[in-house]
Each structure stands twice: as structure tokens, then as C-alpha cells.
Simulated assay, not measured.
Amino acid sequence: MIQTSARLLQLLSLLQVRREWTGPALADRMGVTERTVRRDIDKLRNLGYPIHASPGVAGGYQLGAGAQLPPLLLDDNEALAVALGLNSVAAGPVAGIGEASVRALAKLEQVLPSRLRPKFAMLKAAVTTIPSNAGTVDPQQLTVVSAAISDRRQISFDYVKSDGESARRLVEPYRLVDTGRRWYLVAWDLEREDWRTFRADRLASLPSERKKYTPRPLPAEDLAAYVQQSITRSPYRFDVVVRLRAPLAEVAAVVNSQYATLSADGAMATILRSGWDNLAAPAAYLAALDMDFEILEPGEFKSYALELAHRLKGAAGTVTDAADAEPQPQ
């Protein structure tokens, strides 16, 4: 009985790591006959595991999705990865997931092998997650949007813009992008006939599925980079470009990717591009980086920086207006 149970666990583990197995391949891997494989497949089905079989030479066995979540077999690295993910997701921006992740983590920790407990405790103690102050997202909204993306169906929802104005939007959803602090939806806006990026936490209603749509060419091959540019530059009045006198790695360590896009300019300089609604904010932000920089664009920012420098010198008592200056003794 123990040998049979161990063989079933081995078979289940194999089915989880590959999309499809042929009978002969499973038999060879497990060191048993194909008849034994068929009997063990039937036993797993009786335990609730949905295992599909396709006939023919090219056919095989595939573990499918069932009505209930069956136990999963994880190797050491997978178990640690899942445990650390559950530990960190509690501080994430998806509402209601934190409590569920704590419950799941408690179950996982209870069954972790003794050899993994010290390693997990060490990793858990070394990793600290800062809670996000971004708006939370309803996980059901993400589920509905994901299903619509998979089924190629239009969705409609109420959306609140940054100015507080709310409007009904009808879109073709293409991709959800997680930036770490927020979730964004890349979609084709049917009313505006253009691509749009929507913040998921600003969806004011549960999306409703509509008719199916024919996919259109994406606005960019790298949608993550497209979203980054959309949220750091496109919606703003000023497109600021500066050259920082520091290597890319050094700048990337202090500049959040949600605020700017970075690119190397040789080994010792970095080009920073970012969008702003006013010029005072980027001046303060760049000064706070404590790095030498050169303003490349726009011209208005260069003029503003000169005016600001003059005011700061005056505030420090180091500037005297030439017209009011007292004649200096010869």
C-alpha cells in the first residue's frame, strides 16, 4: 500500500511538471508497465484529479482543471518560492488578498519539511515589504478583466479619472500590467478609437462582458514598457529629459520606474525621461537625487532652472542686482 501511494504521488508530480505525457514515457520514467500507469491514472481520477486522455499515437495524459482544488506537489525551491510570495503579497494592492495569503501561508508552513524550515525562516527574516499606499484593487475585477482578455470580449465599466470625473467606458481589453504598486489595463477605447491605459483601482464598477472582438495589432511589442511610458510621460504637460552624471545602475537604484524611464548614456551617464504637469516638481525631484545633471529638454525647463537658481542664490544672500549695487571703491 505504501509503495502504491508513493507511486501515485510520483505520477501526480510528473503530470504537474509537463503539459502532456504519453503512456510509454510515464511508464519508462516510473519504471513500471503501461498497464500500471493506466491503473494509477484511474486511481488519481477517483481521488478527484481531472486527468484527460487523448487516444492515438500522438495522444497522452494531461492534468486538467477540476471543480475543486486538489493538493499540489511542490519541490523544495517551488515551496520556498510560494511561501515567500504569500508572505509578501499581504502588503500588495489587491484588496482582500492579504488575509487569504496569511491563511494559505499558515497551511504551507505547517507542512513544510523540517529541512526547509530554517531556510524559509532565514529568508522571511531578511525580506521586508513596505506596504503600498496605492489604491486597492478588487480581486474580482481583475478576475473578470482577465477572463475577458482570454475570451476576447469587450467590457464596459465606470471609470474615475484623476480629476474625479466619472464616465462609462467601453473597451477591448488586451493586457493587465502589474507595476508593483498598481495594476494597469491596456485596452482599445471604442469611443475614442485609440489605445488607453486604465488604472485598475479607478474602476468604479465591476466590468460587464459584451460581445467578442477581433484582436487588432498591439500598440507596442513590450506592453510593460508601453505602460511605463504612458504613466511617466504621455499624460503630462512637460516631457522632461535630463542627463544624470551617474551610471545607469546607480540611478536605477534610487529612481522608481513609475516616475521615469532610464537609459544608459555611455558608462558614466544616464538619460532620464519623465512627464510633469509643472516645472517646480521635477526641479525639486532632481535636486533631491543629489546627482549632477544637465537639462536637455524642454527649453522652458532650462529657463525655469535659471530663474530658480537666481532666486535660491538670492535667498542665500549671494546675489546682488547690478542696477542696485553700490559702486565699489577704486
Rank of each mutant, 00 (worst) to 15 (best):
I2G: 15
I2E: 14
R7F: 02
R7T: 06
L9Q: 11
L11I: 07
L11Q: 09
L11P: 02
L12G: 00
L12A: 02
L14A: 07
V17A: 03
R18L: 10
E20H: 08
E20G: 00
W21S: 00
A27F: 00
D28M: 00
M30A: 03
R35P: 00
R38M: 09
R38H: 11
R39L: 04
K43M: 10
K43H: 12
K43A: 13
N46W: 07
Y49C: 07
H52G: 03
G56Y: 09
V57F: 13
G66W: 02
G66K: 07
A67R: 14
Q68W: 07
P70M: 12
P71M: 08
L73W: 00
D76M: 06
D76F: 04
D76K: 04
N77G: 12
N77A: 15
E78D: 12
A81W: 04
V82H: 01
G92I: 09
P93C: 09
G96W: 09
G96I: 11
I97N: 00
A100N: 02
A100C: 00
R103A: 07
L105D: 03
K107Y: 11
E109A: 01
P113T: 03
S114Q: 15
L116D: 06
P118W: 05
K119Q: 15
A121H: 05
M122D: 13
V127S: 10
V127Y: 09
T128A: 14
T128Q: 15
T128F: 12
T128D: 11
T129M: 14
G135P: 02
V137M: 05
V137S: 03
T143C: 05
V145P: 02
V145L: 08
S146W: 00
S150M: 14
D151M: 08
R152Q: 14
I155R: 08
I155N: 10
G164T: 04
L170M: 02
V171F: 03
E172M: 11
L176N: 00
D178Y: 13
W183L: 01
A187T: 09
D189T: 02
R192Q: 15
E193S: 12
D194N: 15
W195Y: 10
R196D: 04
R196W: 08
R196N: 03
R202D: 05
S205W: 07
S208R: 15
E209M: 11
K212Y: 06
R216F: 02
A224I: 11
A225C: 06
Q228E: 10
Q229T: 13
Q229K: 14
Q229C: 09
I231G: 02
T232A: 14
R233M: 13
A246G: 01
E250G: 01
A253M: 07
A253Y: 00
V255T: 02
N256F: 08
S257V: 06
L262I: 10
S263Y: 00
D265S: 12
M268C: 09
R273T: 11
S274P: 07
S274T: 12
N278K: 05
N278Q: 09
A280E: 15
A284N: 12
L286Q: 06
L289V: 03
M291R: 15
M291Q: 13
E294F: 04
I295W: 01
E297A: 15
P298H: 08
G299S: 15
G299A: 15
G299T: 13
G299M: 13
F301D: 03
S303A: 15
A305I: 01
L306T: 10
L312H: 11
L312Q: 14
A316G: 08
G317R: 04
G317A: 06
T318L: 14
T318D: 12
V319P: 08
T320K: 11
D321G: 06
A325K: 13
